[in-house]
Nucleic acid binder design. Structure first.
Lengths: 190, 190, 190, 190
DNA sequence: TATGAATGAGAATTCATTCAT
DNA sequence: TATGAATGAATTCTCATTCAT
């Protein structure tokens, strides 16, 4: 029995991400994806139930890839601040070096096509972050506020920062990056 | 000639926003908008060049409405912190009470259909915010970092907060709101 | 009472001819004609019943202009061959110097939109040609064949010739023109 | 995969020609063609890139068919006049018995939708005619004029003749046909 | 006379998807 | 597994025309 080709699925993902960033979700059709991926449109339906399913799987695949990188070599036995900085830097590094993946996530996150379940699964991949924030709270290093609130301050400004950079409205400098991280820390700090 | 109905353009906008939030940008067709707005599909083309043009005009219209509300009664001669808090609360209030407008903006902001020019014009509507941030810097109240950076910390966590609330993952409480504003202030403070 | 503006009707004609030659009959819409003519689309309907009516009137207008030029200074009391040559040269001259008009006629002649009546009226404008051919037959200078047949040989090669010239596949030289006329005469001659 | 039906392309062609003659090029829409051909409108786009492409391919298909018939049993080793007459009669016979194809060609020839390349390819299919005319010139049987000129006199009057017949303004008689051919020969003859 | 506003009908084309192979 | 063929439904947008002014 032949098995589903991992590469084929991957090249469909790549084509989809590329086209969605270039022309938007609405302009990206299955046949265009197929053409770009070098397969027949019907082949996509061998791998995915339908367009929505494909997009949700793509979303999770990117989230997975992202978490793998963020938590690569992650060690939460080190000091809280070090762990915090490590994770945040890895995160920023990922989205900077994986522009298309990141922008796809951003675009798809605001779409009603994103299933609640996929959203939930995507969040769960970043469980260690929540642990970190909880730990900071229990150690009275972070503010005693809802962990969700801490999470927002931890990531949203950085994400916006990278988007501004991609939009050409800002430069990417090591100094600014440090300031960004410092500000993030200040926001969380008790 | 017949007279141009001012409400028509407005009802097209309303219908568009509503449908986009309900089914997503990609799923919202001109004919569905027309039907919901109670006009003929071709009538939309009397008011707008094409779909893209319509969406960009809608984007700017919402941004305009938002800025009008944020800067209603805005007085930057009062203390910096008061002005800061006033603007931020007005902003949060607007997006909370104008869910569909806000979510449309969020969705459209990540779309390649958004013209650079519209984005720029939209930003310029919030010029007083940039003045406020600059002033804070010159008074050494805010960190000496890029104003764009301050801007991100000022708004992005709040926006994410409201999105989480809309997504039902968070409750809207006065206390949390105060914490949010405090955290924002802490992030900016020198 | 204001009267219908001759100029306006004329500029509608001009715009129509121009657009039809540039983009074809199918691509030429009333609104495009109106825009090019500098009037409102609805104004066209002040002058013409509908598109078909407009095109037929345009057809006849061009035919009229053509016949006026062909028969300017036409004197059939001179020798048959002189009259023949005079008319043919005038005709060729007209279509060469009125490219757009001529090509419109050619394009519209093959369209089912051309009313039988307009076709008939257009033919009647060239009655002197038929007289000429009849006269040539009665003088045994021309072949004793159907006058329609003589007519075809008199004009069709020349029309094709000019079309080839417009298509850039042939040059326009006085010598060739003379040959063309000689060949035409040879074809008719008994 | 399903197999591609050779007849499908052919039935699309037939439907197109029929409708174009009945209602004109501008009035013939893809969906009408599809309906008449008994296929879905989208199926046409499996076979052709777009309307323009379809019309050009149709044009060439008809030209091909025409040339096949004109040059069926064509033997240019016989006497020049016999070859000439054979080709011309075959041509007239084709257009008389393939009214719709011929009228489509006439209508489309004057349309800007006809690509220069299709026109060129169409002409090349009739290369033997040009050889014949050249040969006649080299044998001093035909006039020493541009071959294009000879070509026009060879075909255009006949085409007009058949069009007049189709328009009901002329009858089709063997005698007239003979006269027509004689006149054509006279026009070419040195 | 002149025209901007309005529209139903229809245009070309693409869509996501299925099916037979 | 893989795909070319096929399609009904939908897309954006334009059309010829009418209407109220």
């Amino acid at each position: 029995m032949r098995h589903k080709d991992e590469n084929k699925s991957e090249s469909i993902f790549k084509a989809a991400i590329h086209l969605i960033n270039e022309h938007g979700l609405s302009e990206t059709s299955m046949s265009k994806i197929a053409k770009k991926a070098g397969v027949s449109a019907s082949t996509i339906y061998v791998y995915f139930e339908n367009k929505e399913d494909m997009l949700n799987k793509l979303y999770l695949s990117v989230k997975k890839k992202m978490s793998l990188e963020v938590f690569y070599n992650y060690d939460d036995s080190i000091s809280l601040q070090s762990a915090f900085e490590h994770a945040l830097r890895k995160f920023i590094n990922f989205i900077v070096t994986n522009k298309e993946e990141f922008l796809f996530i951003e675009q798809f996150s605001n779409s009603p096509l994103l299933h609640k379940l996929s959203l939930k699964e995507g969040i769960e991949l970043f469980e260690p972050i929540f642990s970190l924030l909880e730990k900071g709270k229990s150690q009275n290093i972070f503010k005693q506020v809802d962990t969700g609130l801490l999470h927002m301050f931890m990531f949203n400004p950085s994400m916006q920062y990278v988007k501004e950079y991609f939009g050409g409205r800002i430069e990417l400098k090591q100094d600014t990056l440090n300031e960004l991280i410092q500000m993030t820390w200040d926001a969380l700090k008790a």
